[in-house]
Design a protein around this nucleic acid. Structure first.
Length: 848
RNA sequence: GCCGAAGUGGUGGAAUGGCAGACACGCUAGCUUGAGGUGCUAGUGGGGCGACCCAUGGGGGUUCGAAUCCCCCCUUCGGCACCA
């Protein structure tokens, strides 16, 4: 064995051997229990970044650990390879998106292999291949048959930079999730997936996903946004029609004094009275020009205009002026709001501005004190007792809610209703590099699905990408022109492609049988592997990919293709990889090489250092994994990224920390190399075990095992460091027991640093791969000590430590403690009031 | 504004009711080395000569005992934000 640890040589050697031996190939197994470990597959953007390294290191340790514990582990990898960057690269440099994508895949795959990740590469998939996206199209057709994919005209989010429509989930604070451009509204005819059909089930199962972080579930629940209320009809004065309103506060109905409509409400036209016409129309024009973001900005001043029409409050029979208000959204509820200024802050502000009547209908418990405050300073939105509400007076408002709804139902003018914030998922994208939507438009037959036998609808290669105009596919005559499958007359293909989130909504199923070519996946094989036992990825997909995948899983189940309700049993959302930023007042963000002695090398001005932020190219605080692997090796890179912080927390990059991880592996190397150098290893027979070393071996096994089960990688590595520190100091290095301790060290460390452990494993004479070794078990008896260190407290303060035989009676411990000179000093002249003893741990003497 | 998470040495973090600071980084001293680096040994929360005292964002509480549980406040980060 070499004296010096040469990470590069070792890592290349073992990666080659593992590949040749197909060490990570996995097939279905009837005997072993399955375990499916999955990390979110990457978009092939060019190179992997530290976030990937962290994500995949976590997954790899989990996969290797479970595999050594006897599970049959499915651990696949692939590429989310449709998407805009490929198309943008094509526009800028003229490279075809396919070429760009496949080159990136090839480079990134090499990078992943250099990390020594235990993927079964025979299961690799790429969503941009016709073999994959054929099944996207197939699933689309199935959903369309079931009415879960449909086409409609509606206002949609348009990103002017990406030149495409975005789903609601892909707009973050009014900005495009990808490029942070202000999103605009456009009225377009688009394809939608009916995710709202699953709103209730998606919400319901949030309570059953015990293996998910509560944070993610809360975000999903909020996104679905269920609220229970009522729909109420407000009859329009001098008309037979009524305005339907959704309210979560039917208890305040007696206090409703006017109605607010969204500017887009379909009845607006009919309600405008001649005298108000010009004013109303100019208001609507003005509001429609505002972006949706501006309109949903909570700080925006509430504005409106009177239509001139009235409706009638069904309970009070009072006239209610009908207003159009800028803050009412057509997409939510019915696009019409019954305004109760006394018990809703928005209505309150609106009513004050336009001098509209206010009637208090819920009395706060402390009414006596605040009744003097009239006129009201703000709306009272909490619970109380009903007043000014006819026969409902005196009831508590919670009970009144139900009573009033019942009353409305009896009169046939209202009903209990549930409303959701979740909208259907718009999936049409006006871009080239995506999965074509398999639909045909025929002047005679209308919208016609592409027959299953004609799948896949292949992306044409001859499209010129300019970044201008509408869907690039529309420009390809060859693609667009098609015969109608029904009547044979000339027809046009759909020119939009699917949102790439469609591709990633079921890829985890494809891994089970990646080469299946009669269906998206083999039903039987999927049954063996699904659901994913452990899913790992960034929290940024909390309501994007993770919600879409849940929806797809349920829809696929209802197509009869599986019987799985939820795709991911356990979810780990890892934190971001951060590093401090460096900034020069004149030159902005600086790379480390642009800073010398804390000064900018361009202008010599002092550089501001910190705070730490998520690594990003624009902030110039990234670290290239290639460079770290080149210098320290994959094992060090992996160990550092797992040791520096618990997986769900943000990780602060530290060059010194990497050095520390490297030092640790070097210590492991030297320790084993020295054992070899010493030549003699113990005979093993007839030796008596050293109790301290025996304890240490079992302690390490237990600690690392327990920590790995909980994904506490940082403390597991710390335990291994303690183990090696112990072995460095241990004197009898020629015993077979010491050799056992070394073997245990290598086995326990191997999921984290597989290459060095494999090399050393063979170095100490083992013939089989360390991958095949069973995870060690520990001897509970060895962890029982004969003596226990009992801490003696007096009034809760530490006053002494005594060593006692384990499990002796409290009285005995007290006797020993009280005879301890230090303890007795503290007790002199005091009377003992109480003694608390926790076995083998602590003795607390309470004195007066 | 609402919801959530977090706040512990110079730093990353450990301890989820029982010895606060495991492990690592950094720093200090010594040894090794021609030197630098590496490696090894020892030390390292603050205060005090000391016995000891003080310390887990701040304040209160529960408990024999609180970083940990409860209440109030402060700060930071994340998510949602006119959703009727």
């Amino acid at each position: 064995m070499q004296e010096k640890y040469d990470s590069k040589q070792i890592e290349e050697k073992w990666q080659k051997i593992w590949e040749e031996n197909k060490a990570f190939k996995v097939t279905e197994d009837k005997v072993k229990k399955k375990y499916y470990v999955l990390e979110m597959f990457p978009y092939p953007s060019g190179k992997i970044h530290m976030g990937h390294v962290r994500n995949y290191s976590i997954g790899d340790v989990a996969a290797r650990f479970l595999s050594m514990r006897g599970y049959n582990v499915l651990h696949p990898m692939g590429w989310d390879s449709f998407g805009m960057p490929a198309e943008n690269a094509a526009i800028q440099h003229g490279t075809h998106p396919a070429k760009w994508t496949y080159e990136n895949i090839s480079y990134m795959k090499k990078q992943l292999k250099r990390l020594g990740l235990s993927y079964d590469w025979e299961r690799e998939i790429a969503t941009c291949t016709p073999e994959y996206y054929k099944w996207n199209q197939w699933l689309f057709l199935k959903l369309q048959e079931k009415g879960l994919a449909y086409r409609k005209q509606s206002a949609v989010n348009w990103c002017p930079k990406c030149l495409t429509v975005l789903a609601n989930e892909q707009v973050e604070g009014g900005l495009c999730w990808r490029c942070e451009t202000q999103v605009e509204q456009k009225n377009l005819e688009q394809w939608f997936f009916k995710i709202t059909a699953y709103a209730e089930e998606l919400l319901d199962y949030c309570d059953k996903l015990h293996g998910w972080p509560e944070k993610v579930l809360i975000m999903q629940r909020n996104w679905i946004g269920k609220s229970i209320g009522a729909e109420v009809d407000f009859k329009i004065e001098n008309s037979n029609e009524a305005i339907k309103v959704f309210t979560t506060r039917p208890d305040t109905l007696f206090g409703a004094t006017f109605i607010s409509l969204a500017p887009e409400h379909p009845m607006v036209e009919k309600l405008i009275v001649k005298s108000q016409e010009s004013e109303v129309k100019s208001f609507i024009e003005r509001v429609k020009k505002q972006s949706r973001t501006a309109r949903t900005e909570a700080l925006l001043e509430k504005e409106g205009v009177f239509t001139g029409s009235y409706c009638i409050n069904p309970l009070t029979n009072k006239r209610m002026p009908i207003y159009i208000a800028n803050f009412v959204l057509m997409e939510y509820g019915t696009g019409a709001v019954m305004a109760v200024p006394t018990h809703d802050q928005r209505d309150f502000e609106f009513a004050k501005k336009y001098n509209l009547p206010m009637i208090v209908v819920i009395q706060p418990p402390n009414w006596g004190q605040i009744s003097n405050l009239s006129p009201l300073q703000e709306a009272y939105v909490d619970d109380g007792i009903m007043v000014n509400s006819g026969t409902f007076n005196g009831m508590n408002n919670r009970d009144a809610m139900e009573a009033i709804v019942r009353h409305l139902e009896e009169k046939g003018i209202g009903k209990k209703t549930i409303s959701y914030k979740l909208r259907d998922w718009g999936i049409s994208r006006q871009r080239y590099w995506g999965c074509p939507i398999p639909m045909i438009y025929c002047d005679s037959c209308g919208v016609v699905p592409v027959p299953y036998k004609d799948l896949p609808v292949v992306l044409p290669e001859d499209v010129k990408l300019t970044g201008e105009g509408a869907s690039p596919l529309a420009q390809s005559e060859k693609f667009i022109k098609v015969k109608c499958p029904k009547c044979g007359k000339p027809a046009r293909r759909e020119a939009d492609t699917m949102d790439t989130f469609v591709d990633s909504s079921w890829y985890f199923l494809r891994y089970a049988s990646p080469r299946e070519n009669n269906s998206p996946f083999s039903k039987e094989v999927v049954k063996c592997w699904m659901p994913v036992d452990q899913y790992i990825g960034g929290v940024e997909h909390a309501v994007l990919h993770l919600l879409y995948s849940r929806f797809f899983t349920k829809a696929i189940r209802d197509l009869g293709l599986t019987d799985i309700d939820e795709p991911f049993t356990n979810l780990l959302t890892q934190g971001m990889v951060c590093k401090e930023i460096m900034k020069c007042k004149e030159h902005g963000y600086l790379l480390p090489e642009e800073v010398r002695d804390k000064k900018c090398i361009k202008c010599g001005k002092p550089v501001e250092i910190g705070p730490t932020e998520k690594m990003s190219k624009s902030k110039k605080n990234t670290i290239d994994p290639d460079k770290i692997i080149e210098r320290y090796g994959a094992d060090t890179t992996r160990v550092f990224s797992l040791f520096a912080a618990p997986p769900e927390k943000d990780l602060d990059w530290s060059d010194e920390g990497v050095e520390g991880a490297y030092r640790f592996l070097n210590r492991v190397w030297r320790l084993v190399a020295e054992m070899q150098g010493a030549g003699g290893r113990g005979q093993g027979s007839g030796e008596t075990k050293n109790p301290e070393l025996n304890y240490e071996i079992n302690r390490a096994v237990k600690k690392v095992t327990d920590d790995l089960k909980e994904f506490h990688f940082n403390t597991a590595i710390a335990a291994l460091m303690e183990h090696i520190n112990f072995l460095y100091k241990y004197e009898d290095k020629n015993s077979s027991q010491y050799e056992e301790a070394i073997e245990i060290l290598l086995v326990l460390l191997s999921p984290f640093a597989p290459h060095i452990c494999e090399e050393l494993w063979h170095g100490i004479g083992k013939k089989d791969s360390i991958l095949k070794v069973d995870w060690p078990s520990y001897d509970e008896a060895a962890l029982k000590k004969e003596e226990a260190l009992v801490v003696v407290q007096i009034n809760g303060k530490l006053r002494g430590r005594i060593s006692v035989p384990v499990n002796i009676q409290q009285a005995e411990v007290e006797k020993i403690a009280l005879s301890d000179s230090k303890v007795s000093e503290w007790l002199a002249g005091k009377s003992i009031k109480k003694v608390v003893y926790v076995q083998n741990k602590i003795l607390n003497v309470v004195v007066g």
